[in-house]
Design a protein around this nucleic acid. Structure first.
Length: 133
RNA sequence: CUACAAACCCGAGCCAUCGCUCCGAGCAAUCGGGGAGGAAAGUCCGGACAGUAAAGAGCAACCCACCGGUUAAGCGCCGGCUUCCCGCUAACCCGGGAAAGAGAGAGUGCCACAGAAAAUAACUAUCACACCAAAAGUGUGACAAAGGUGAAAACGUGAGGUAAGAGCUCACGGCUGUAACUGGUAACAGGGGCAGCGGGUAAACCUUGGGUACUGUAAUGCCAUGUAUAGGAACGUUGGAGGGCUGCUCGCCCGAGUUGCUGCUUUGCAGCACAGGUUCCAGGGUAGGCAGCAAGAUCGGUUCAGUAAUGACCCGGCCAGAUAAAUGAUGGAGUUGAAACAGAAUCCGGCUUACGAGGUUUGUAGUUUU
């Protein structure tokens, strides 16, 4: 569970309601072809925080009508996040909690290497924004 | 050997590192094991399962349409029949394929072009009669032999018959339907007594016979949570801690005990405050878990029954189960870059569509050699 590169179900962004509030009330920026939605919430004192960051990934079914392609993109996004997430986790303070969602907005099926680069940049920018806040 | 077509098989495996999901073991660290498809797709048929509805009958709508078998069921599959097409043939037999296979002898509609005419046939022609001296011609009527058109034109030959002709009649033959009777479970085949012969189209309407309640696992069942409460208003005039019945609410029952202050001739009454109650307003919270849900019309194999589809006995196996949704990423060798179509979501049986490197078999064509 405490493996540095793991990405288990605890760290995933699960609830439908949380996703809805993230899309309507969260902030966003994009590093093509990835768009990032995020919120920064304080954690009430005394409440045990399970994990500093909850993250989810997604693809629009408008752009990719085949389920195989959507699965492929989500897997690549998860992989890119998993391997590069440690800096972000370190930046979140003990009394804070971050929810992030990575939406793929490209129209073409991506390769892993460039996608990994974009994800790296996105995580960097997110870390900067958190440090300023 | 190459190319094409069809049918069937297969739909990748190995090593290293980092990960995901489910199950089992363990206090834990961790360890061990399972982890997409032939179509998981389209949602076109048929079921299982579940909920709702339902006296009975009819109309409408939709579906089905040769026979038998198979199955949980089917518009599937297997076998057979009939018709048609292709090959071979003089022809049959035979081989292969297709079927939109009830009814055109119930009614309505439609039938391109050509042709007189595509369905109560009549242009040319033939015959009779009238007009005319006669012929020709014109008119009226009869007829359906001959002609050409067309995918399709009104049974064939001969004789009789007639004004001329004609299934108008007869003989022989052909075709269609059907009764005895024979064979077959049946479709049907043989058979021909009888009736008829003035076409096709039901993938036009329609007729006949049979069938169909609707909704889908986000179904459905259970558990938990939940009307708390900061606050406001009104009513009312209860003054009550606690306990029992219940999953909870409402309600009912038992019940120690009977708020504070002020006034009054003080067992008590009145007023105010506070607490509680009811109603309304405002406002808040939840939207989670378990079952369904994966051991089954299951998978692999032997034997047996059956032409086959399929079934029976026995032996062995356990083979995804998520809920924003796992089954992946990177590197390596190999054969060149392991590729095409494509991702389970309640589960099965089919059908249809999509597709790749390769393998097997069959057929066709070509080339080389003998």
């Amino acid at each position: 569970m405490n493996q540095p590169n793991s990405y288990s179900s605890q760290e995933k962004l699960k609830s439908r309601k949380a996703l809805e509030s993230l899309f309507t009330g969260g902030k966003s920026f994009s590093v093509f072809p990835v768009k990032v939605f995020y919120t920064l919430d304080p954690v009430e004192a005394g409440v045990q925080r399970e994990t500093p960051v909850n993250a989810g990934v997604g693809v629009s079914s408008k752009n990719f009508r085949k389920a195989v392609q959507r699965n492929r993109i989500k897997r690549l996004l998860r992989e890119a996040y998993r391997t590069q997430k440690q800096a972000l986790q370190a930046a979140v303070k003990a009394e804070q909690h971050v929810s992030v969602f990575f939406l793929y907005i490209g129209k073409e099926l991506p390769e892993y290497a460039p996608l990994k680069e974009s994800m790296g940049k996105a995580l960097e920018r997110l870390t900067e924004k958190l440090n300023k806040a």
